[in-house]
Each structure stands twice: as structure tokens, then as C-alpha cells.
Design a protein around this nucleic acid. Structure first.
Lengths: 157, 157
DNA sequence: TCGGCTATGTATAAAGA
DNA sequence: TTCTTTATACATAGCCG
């Protein structure tokens, strides 16, 4: 009577859980967290800009290496001011952030379970486009290794 | 009986109030809100960087016109990448404040969970090679698709 | 400006659709 | 991946000192 929830005290979810601020190991979780937090960060930046009437610029790299940005009124205008201010010297304050990259786990599968069979033209072309980005990232990484020999042979991609 | 808190309504404060997202008129409040939110924004940026192992840069102007920034690993490195990426024109997506948002959020990124950060040269080249294969599959699929569409349109004629 | 406090608004981890 | 739901963690407006 009183304990209407007694045996059915099965909470549908655990609700938000506390997580340590360190690189998320689970790829799926990391991707989801990235998307949500990137959106929230941009939103916060937008609010700060509106509430205080100030310019703001945010640039973030995705786990895949793609760059996303938000700027009010625009990223470029803020960057210009930043660069200009840095020349003049003393009217900017910055906070650095040292961090160590966690060791990425092995993953030699990639698109093992990627099926192209059931995709529409639009999706296929979308992936073709995405692959272009991935290719650029790969090339960039390879060049970082200061060995362009092999890379050149793949430039025909 | 119902208002058990009536006489002892000793709530010290009203707690957080909801405020509209528009420029704060009261100067004092604006200054306070700016300081708090700037700190929180930087903190969020830092968390995103750590949790997802990605680079982040944030630049904000204070109500007084001073510039504050946060970057991981540094504002400059991220700006450099941003500028460089813009030259290439391909791998960056941005949102302007008053413009339409979320235009480029549509791609599925099936390899979003692919991390190139800590791979060795050999692994990178291996993936480059794999990508060659995938590209061919993609092109073939697109070709097949086009053929089907072509065939269909012919039938309809 | 800089913190501290409180009550409430908001962000978000997990899981499922 | 995107959207929804749920419960909880975290952010923060208004006040004080």
C-alpha cells in the first residue's frame, strides 16, 4: 500500500554518473561525449557572448582530427584581434594546459564491418567526402613522421 | 498544516534564478557573470580536451575589451592548424553566431572512432593502403548505383 | 574583484529506441 | 548517429562580506 514502488523499484536508468576527467577509453562513449560536450561548449560560448556583449571564438578538434569552430561575430575577427593584441604585447592573458596523450589502444580493424551494400548514392558520396578528410589527416600524420616516400605513392588516392 | 514552512521560511537566499539570454543591463551583475562564466567556459574546454584527447582553443573578450584565452596544448598551435585547414578549405566546419546552425552535422562518420594520434608510421601506411581498397569499393558502389539509376530512368522513358 | 552560500537551473552519463 | 528518458552531477544568479 505504502510502498507502491517496492518490488518495482527498478529505476529505468542510473541517471548521470560521475566520471573522472581523463581520456575516455571506450570509443563509443568518447564519441558521444565529444559531440554533446562540443555542442554545450559552443552554446556556453554563445551565451557568454550574448549576456556580456563580448566577442568569443572557440576552435575544437574532433577525435578524427576534423576542426570545428564557433565565433561571435566570427572566428576570424576574434583571431585577428588576438594576433594583433599579441603583437602589441600586454593586453591579453592566457592559460596554458599541459596534457599527456593517453596511449591509444590497438585497433587494426577499421572498416572491417562496414557494409557499403545497402547505402544510397547520397550516403556513398558523403563517405567519399569524409574519406577525403581522413586521407588528409593520414597524410598529415605520415608527413609528421618525416618520411614522404611512401606517402607520395598514395597521393593518387 | 499544509504550510509547515510558513513561519520558518528561513531560506537564506532565493537560489539561482533563471535569466533571459540577452545582454545583462546591470553592470555589476554583468561583470560578475562574465568572470564566472569565463572560468566555467575554460574549464569545460579543458575537460573536453582531456576527456576526448583533442586540441581546443578559446578566446574571449572582456567587457573592458581585454582578451583572455585558453588553449590545449596552446592557443597558437590550434590557431595555426585552423588557419592552415582553412587554406586547404576541406577539413573544417564552423558555426557563425547569427547564422544557421548545424548545417554540416549530417555526416555519419562511421570511422569517427579512428584515432591517428598514436600510430606509428607503419600503421599509418597500412591504413593508407587499406583506404585505397575502400576507395575502390566506394567508387564501384557509386558506379553501380549510377548504373541502376540510369537503367531505371531509361525504363521510365 | 574575490570568495562563500543556497536553492534552483542546466548539463550530461547511461541505456534504449 | 540522433533522439528520448531518467537520475544525478555540476553550474550559477542573487546576496553577503
Amino acid at each position: 500500500m505504502e510502498n507502491k514502488e517496492e518490488e518495482t523499484s527498478k529505476k529505468k536508468t542510473l541517471g548521470r554518473r560521475k566520471i573522472p576527467i581523463e581520456k575516455i577509453s571506450n570509443k563509443k562513449s568518447l564519441q558521444v561525449a565529444f559531440s554533446k560536450r562540443r555542442g554545450s561548449l559552443f552554446k556556453k560560448a554563445s551565451e557568454l557572448s550574448t549576456l556580456c556583449g563580448v566577442q568569443v571564438a572557440v576552435i575544437v578538434e574532433s577525435p578524427a582530427g576534423k576542426l570545428y569552430s564557433f565565433g561571435s561575430p566570427s572566428v576570424d575577427s576574434v583571431i585577428d584581434r588576438f594576433e594583433k593584441a599579441r603583437e602589441d604585447g600586454l593586453n591579453s592573458c592566457s592559460e596554458a594546459h599541459e596534457e599527456e596523450k593517453g596511449v591509444m589502444e590497438k585497433s587494426n580493424w577499421w572498416w572491417e564491418d562496414v557494409f557499403l551494400e545497402n547505402l544510397g548514392l547520397e550516403e556513398l558520396e558523403e563517405r567519399m567526402s569524409d574519406m577525403q578528410v581522413l586521407k588528409n589527416n593520414l597524410l598529415k600524420r605520415i608527413q609528421d613522421h618525416d618520411d614522404l616516400v611512401m606517402a607520395d605513392s598514395f597521393l593518387n588516392l
